[in-house]
Design a protein around this nucleic acid. Structure first.
Length: 514
RNA sequence: GCCGGAGUAGCUCAGUGGUAGAGCAACCGGCCCAUACCCGGUAUGUCGCAAGUUCAAUUCUUGCCUCCGGCACCA
């Protein structure tokens, strides 16, 4: 049995959940569900990043202790993940005791290797925020949060990680393993970056209190990357459950936003090398979700509320729409209009109607009981079968390449073939002619078989819709996929049922008069 | 400024050295099992601009324009 361990970035709890965060979660969830379907031993890790000055400040603004605030936010994020059916195996929090212990163990290991040294960090500092900022984060030198306060150039002693020592090893690893950074565009960027040479980075802060105490110097807390990235190993037992850790690590896939690629393919691997641990197999930096041409962002206030999308389309459809509308390897644009069109076209008209009209005819002609196919397959029958076999093969191939919309396109080719098959076979005509009974049996058998396969193919993307379709044709989604995927596995005499339409059409508001 | 990507039908995008394709939307027709659905058909484009190579370029080269991304401590 193959093993599959997938992670998403842990989300920063400085604000409420946004739709672009759901996007990343859904992508990882589809892969996790796909691997479970395929019978792989699967572990799916998500969670929250709760430390840092920003979180501390957000808590203070609401008059809460950071820990109380984090507890509350972690719950909000968990609720959203439940709403969108994210099937994580663990939701890790950077406040979890085993994470804290694991971080300290990793830092200690890196210290033991001699890769941490005391140095001086200097930067623009806002005394009111008690935080350092990049020049680009300031407003003409003034703090954006405290517009009256001018940031001052300050330095503090903190601990550095000797990233520069790993320059050659990182370069070799990336050159030798083309799949390590994907897509290709991200890989090229990183190779260019490497050419410029790596600098050490600071891994502790003494100006922040909300964080994990730095081993050996409790006046400091572990800063950002020494904390957040480490969740990928502490989440599967590093520092707390060595057997579990050996079983799952290295991760097969880190799914992240493209903006944090560098930290995942340079900082993180170097830290792992230093601690003598294996590197993740693959890091995928996905594109951004754009809305009206802009990157949606919590801090810029342009985020889309996931709940609004869920109310409009239903959580299941949102999962589908995000993965179908956005290319996973680069940025993509979404709009309410585009999503509404696609919902009606793909989900209501194509998929939903295909299932509903077929099962309705099953009730009418056979009382729902799957008939025995009778007679040789016609070219029309073969075309239907071929379309589904192609979708099944493409499902594997495209999901391995993280090409969600490619996989979905093939499934929809098959579903549309099904709709054409109905038109071309015209079961309602066959039903009127008593000498066509055998042909009608074959046609309806083929259609229900198509729907059975559709249930499997759709289920990683829309688990509940998949389950509803499966229930109507008595398909077992837990059955081994290796055999369930074969055309013709539908047992005659299976009792099908007719449920209500899966995806009711959504009416678009009339455009207002010019 | 440097590096990289992109500019193709109303929209989202695919594509090739030989006078352009898909899906959606639009329009016409058919069907009636079905969620005003499905099926068939139709139309639409100076393929960013200019020059060059070539018998021939949207596809190759060069220049330009526009947009986007990356250019170190931000989750």
């Amino acid at each position: 049995m193959a093993k599959f361990y997938v992670t998403t970035a842990i989300v920063y709890v400085n604000d409420r959940p946004a739709l672009h965060y759901v996007y990343e979660l859904v992508a990882a969830d589809v892969l996790a569900r796909y691997h479970r379907l395929a019978g792989d031993d699967t572990f799916f890790l998500t969670g929250t990043d709760e430390h840092s000055i920003n979180v501390e400040r957000a808590a203070r603004q609401q008059g809460m202790a950071a820990r109380v605030y984090s507890d509350q936010m972690a719950q909000i994020y968990k609720d959203v993940e439940a709403q969108f059916r994210i099937s994580y195996d663990r939701f890790i929090r950077t406040e979890d005791p085993d994470h804290v212990a694991g971080v300290q163990k990793l830092i200690a290991a890196i210290q033991a290797r001699g890769d941490i040294y005391k140095g001086t960090y200097s930067g623009w500092y806002c005394p009111s925020c008690e935080a350092f900022y990049q020049e680009s984060e300031l407003n003409n030198g003034y703090c954006r949060i405290h517009p009256a306060i001018k940031a001052s150039w300050l330095q503090e002693d903190n601990y550095f990680f000797a990233l520069s020592r790993y320059q050659d090893r990182l370069q070799q690893h990336i050159e030798k393993h083309p799949q390590f950074i994907q897509p290709e565009s991200r890989r090229n960027e990183i190779l260019g970056w490497l050419k410029a040479g790596l600098k050490d980075f600071s891994i502790s802060r003494s100006t922040i209190a909300w964080g994990i105490p730095f081993p050996g110097d409790e006046r400091h807390v572990v800063y950002v990357w020494g904390d957040a990235l480490v969740n990928y190993i502490t989440g599967v037992g590093y520092g707390s459950d060595e057997a579990a850790f050996r079983r799952w690590w290295p991760a097969d896939l880190h799914i992240i936003g493209k903006d944090i690629t560098r930290f995942h393919v340079l900082y993180w691997p170097a830290m792992l090398m230093s601690a003598g641990l294996p590197l993740p197999r693959r890091v995928w930096g996905h594109g951004w979700m754009l809305y009206r041409g802009e990157r949606t962002s919590k801090s810029a206030g342009t985020a889309i509320d996931p709940n609004e999308a869920a109310v409009t389309f239903g959580p299941e459809a949102v999962r589908y729409l995000l993965l179908r509308e956005l290319p996973f390897d680069r940025d993509g644009e979404i709009s309410w209009d585009g999503m509404t069109d696609r919902y009606n076209a793909d989900l209501a008209n194509d998929l939903g109607n295909f299932v509903y009209r077929t099962l309705s005819m099953m009730q009418r002609y056979f009382d729902g009981k799957v008939p025995l196919p009778d007679g040789d397959a016609t070219p029309l029958d073969a075309r239907l079968r071929t379309a589904f076999e192609k979708a099944v093969r493409g499902f594997d191939r495209h999901l391995k390449d993280m090409d969600f919309s490619g996989a979905l396109a093939l499934i929809w080719d098959a579903v549309n073939r099904g709709n054409k098959y109905i038109e071309e076979s015209a079961p309602w005509v066959l039903a009127r002619q008593s000498d066509q009974r055998r042909r009608l049996q074959t046609v309806m058998y083929n259609l229900v078989e198509a729907i059975r396969l559709t249930a499997y193919l759709v289920s990683p993307f829309m688990p509940e819709a998949g389950a509803k379709i499966a229930a109507q044709v008595k398909a077992d989604l837990k059955a081994p996929w290796a055999t369930a995927r074969e055309w013709g596995r539908l047992a005659p005499r299976t009792q099908t049922t007719l449920d209500s339409p899966l995806f009711p059409r959504i009416e678009k508001p009339e455009p207002s008069l010019p």
